[in-house]
Amino acid sequence: MSTIQALQSNSKLITEKWLLLQASEEGDFADAQTEEQKAEAAELVTSLVKSLTENSIDDPDSDAFSKVKENVGILSLSRARQGYSPRETATFILRLKEAMLEVLSSEITDAKQLYADSLKISKILDNIMINSFESFIKGREDIIMRQTDEITEISTPVIRVWDGVLALPIIGTLDSSRTQVVMESLLQQIVESESSIAILDISGVPAVDTLVAQHLIKTVSATRLMGAECIISGIRPEIAQTIVHLGIDLSGIITKATLASALRTSFDMLRYDVVKKSERKLATGA
């Protein structure tokens, strides 16, 4: 019997062995596996043995395996999202190899043929595993990227503190991609709310170096191009020290120590007076 025939006629056995090996790996009983997982495994084995031909068995990169690779890829991707470990994902395919080689060894009696074909099957499955691993990593990377996006979005809220005054507290390090997001959402909000003043509060920024300062200056310049003014508040003493020591020129920018004083400056610019009720009564003589 040829290797291909042996594997194709035993696909059911391979599936069973594979499931058993997986179960022992997980320290579980075979019946802990869901019907869905079993069906998945059966389908994978069937499509794998079906794609084995006289030509494809010698070429692990053959297009015949693209369907199998795709399915394994999808499976690995979903495992990555479900939080499976890399080890679990790798063993998943390793056990399939084990199952196939086991079946092969009981079907093929000629030692020479068994060795040669086992090698071929191994190569094919190794190839599939590399593929599966790539998909797994990609799944993880997608999650990281989505989380990065979420963090950037969460961390840049634009608050409307007064009619015509926006405040944007920046928390965390201000790198160039972050600045990009900050600038974009700030300017967008300026347009939408028709605000003429924006306060950028950097109390939550751990350090200001030349690069961060440059980003701040860019944000202020862009705000001015839109026709609004930008005040930078929350400058802690140590930040003021670094700025001067580094020789950064912020003279063209309105800077304030606290958000409160920035707000006061905004009222000034808008020509609002903040007056205590009792004092107002006195002033109007009521």
């Binding site: 990009q180 191009l225 839109m226 026709g227």
Partner: peptide
């Protein structure tokens, strides 16, 4: 001026000396 245009001009290195800017026609 649209936000994306403003940011791009800053990145480009263009300075708008002598030009006043406002949010909209009214302002």
């Amino acid at each position: 001026m649209q936000p994306a245009v403003a940011i791009t001009l800053i990145e480009l290195g263009l300075h708008f000396e002598g030009v006043y800017n406002a949010l909209n026609i009214e302002k």
